[in-house]
Design a protein around this nucleic acid. Structure first.
Lengths: 351, 351
DNA sequence: GGGTAGGGTGGGAGCGCTCCCATGTGTGAT
DNA sequence: ATCACACATGGGAGCGCTCCCACCCTACCC
């Protein structure tokens, strides 16, 4: 009786109500079973689960989101400046890690882009509408307004790579400092003495830390740091070429280069080769990221590996914990909010 | 009066109702303005827009999704078999293209993974719940049940790379056949005569088409196709190595290799080098994809470029059109459902 | 002048779910 | 036997929006 109005616009899919009718229980009880509440008798639970199976019931997420005021999804914000980000494996690896961590939950991953002005504006709208429960910020610049917006909106967020030493947001970073130190120590160990470096954009904290590590390793070994051996790139291949050209002009006698990324190392290699320097005989070369480029370069490039997929996974875990904290819960703050993952030097023929 | 109950659980954000009150109009009118309906007078529209601006109103998507039975988001399904997919630039480029196409709309992009069994099951649930308005299927194998599931659920879907010559689903593919022909013709033009090929997994239609193109070009040039010059890889570097080893054993006199992907070409190059063959002097090498690897290989690899980002963009456009078709609309089927985009040979030092 | 379109508008009736309070129903303590 | 309390359960009251029907008013026509 009265089943005429039960089938609504949802395309004929069964509703909670119908499951309840079939199982001979009330709506509330079905809801409890669906959400795994312990306050349901074993017997009733079985009956409901059977009805769910028979009807092929799948909860309507929109209705749930509306009633419970949560979305069960998180966003990954992709900065995408000049699509540089996409050309690097960084992106896919992070996403891969995030996907792995999310596989254990029923959270969904929404990809949002914050490239141009228009995209940033619509992203702000999107966040203001609270269309996601949390946000993963990848590769954010020091002066990006997004983190502040998120804090203001009280949306849980985790950032990859801190913006400064005292990052207020929860963050997951790799140990850029130690990685750079390892690279330089490795070069020193091979008897290199005039070790140059090509930095990334220094408004990226990680790039700064790699430079710090470079300096620290030299200082520790009792070397004076020659500022003319430091050139600034911007993470691009072309930037690597320009920086290498500068370095060669300033210090023709250099015998090693530590580049702040593999891509820049690739650019440097071209310039070195054109200048007739053999690698590693005349100049040893070390990169950072251990990307596919490093393995396929000629000669294969020694590089500092970052556990990027693991960073994605860890970021997600931290974010999920933050989201759980937001909701009424007994214990709080079980996760560290600042995590630094180790890097590792992968030695190949270029050094 | 009665404003006590107006602010609900939504975190204090203004609702349609409040905008209506402020603008001195009814709910329906605000809804019309928000959704750009033409049946609103200019004067009223202005008043509503002012109220929206003053209150900083942003529609609640969950409520809209529930009432209108649509989600304003599409899913990209990532097969992710042994994470091979992620190691290739294919993934990022497709996503990039999709993002570009979506930037003009207010649709969101949800990334879903269909790697393991468990993921596939939860994906099926996800789709059954109609949590997205449409689906982009990337790199699907011939026997994947997903496309059928989607048709059964009547969810609009577009596939990248057909599964067979008569793909029932809407699809966007690159011209693998012509690309392979161009590669082989190029090698023939350089005077190569014993041209081998390393195929990808032949249950991927594109791989089959590349092999077809190889055969066709040779036949057209009046060459008999020597089956011993055909070896099968699986798109991996290791597969490329194994296939190259086989080829060298069977036909030591070969003077060119057309590999079905850059990654396999990289594997082949290693084997060739270990066997003492110089590239391109002894053996010319051509790959497929024109990925970053191709540019950085030594020597730089000649490769067939696919417009991958454009494929992503086109797929999205087709999908959006399909979704629009689903909804009550005047004209139907304005877009072609089977699109093939041209490939292009990029010549470098390896041939 | 009355009749009739039709554009513009208000608001009721849901969409399918969660939250929470009220109502049983059984158990153990008194 | 009586009371209390915990546990299990049903269902009302929303969540904020869209859809759609009814209504009003202003032309415009005969």
């Amino acid at each position: 009786m009265g089943s005429g109005q039960l089938r609504g616009r949802s395309g004929g899919r069964p509703t909670l109500e119908e499951v309840a009718a079939r199982a001979g229980v009330g709506r509330g009880t079905v809801s409890r079973v669906i959400n795994g509440s312990p306050r349901v008798s074993e017997h009733t639970r079985a009956a409901v689960e059977e009805a769910v199976a028979e009807l092929g019931y799948v909860p309507n997420t929109a209705a749930r989101a509306l009633a419970a005021n949560r979305t069960d999804s998180i966003a990954v914000v992709v900065p995408e400046p000049e699509s540089r980000f996409f050309s690097e494996p960084y992106f896919s690896d992070i996403i891969h890690g995030v996907g792995t961590a999310l596989a254990d939950t029923d959270m969904q991953l929404v990809l949002t882009f914050a490239g141009g002005d228009r995209e940033r504006r619509s992203l702000a709208q999107y966040l203001a509408a609270h269309r996601v429960d949390g946000v993963l910020l990848v590769s954010v610049h020091a002066d990006d307004p997004l983190p502040d917006l998120l804090q203001q909106l009280e949306i849980p967020a985790v950032i990859s790579g801190r913006r400064s030493a005292d990052e207020p947001l929860a963050s997951v970073d790799s140990d850029n400092f130690a990685g750079a130190r390892a690279a330089v120590n490795h070069l020193l160990g091979r008897g290199r003495r005039a070790i140059a470096t090509i930095t990334g954009r220094l408004d990226v904290y990680g790039a700064q830390r790699r430079l710090d590590g470079y300096r620290d390793a030299l200082a520790e070994a009792g070397h004076r740091v020659d500022e003319a051996l430091i050139a600034h790139g911007d993470f691009t291949e072309d930037g690597g070429r320009r920086a290498m050209t500068e370095l060669l002009a300033r210090r023709p006698g250099l015998d090693a280069v530590f580049a702040g990324s593999d891509v820049m190392a690739a650019g440097a290699r071209q310039v070195l080769r054109e200048a007739g320097r053999r690698i590693p005989d005349d100049v040893a070369l070390v990169g950072f990221d251990d990307s596919a480029i490093a393995r396929h370069m000629d000669p294969p490039l020694t590089s500092v590996r970052q556990p990027i997929a693991e960073m994605g996974r860890t970021m997600t875990d931290v974010l999920l914990a933050e989201i759980a904290d937001t909701r009424p819960a007994p214990a709080r703050r079980l996760t560290r909010r600042q995590i630094v993952l180790p890097t590792e030097l992968v030695c190949r023929a270029s050094s």
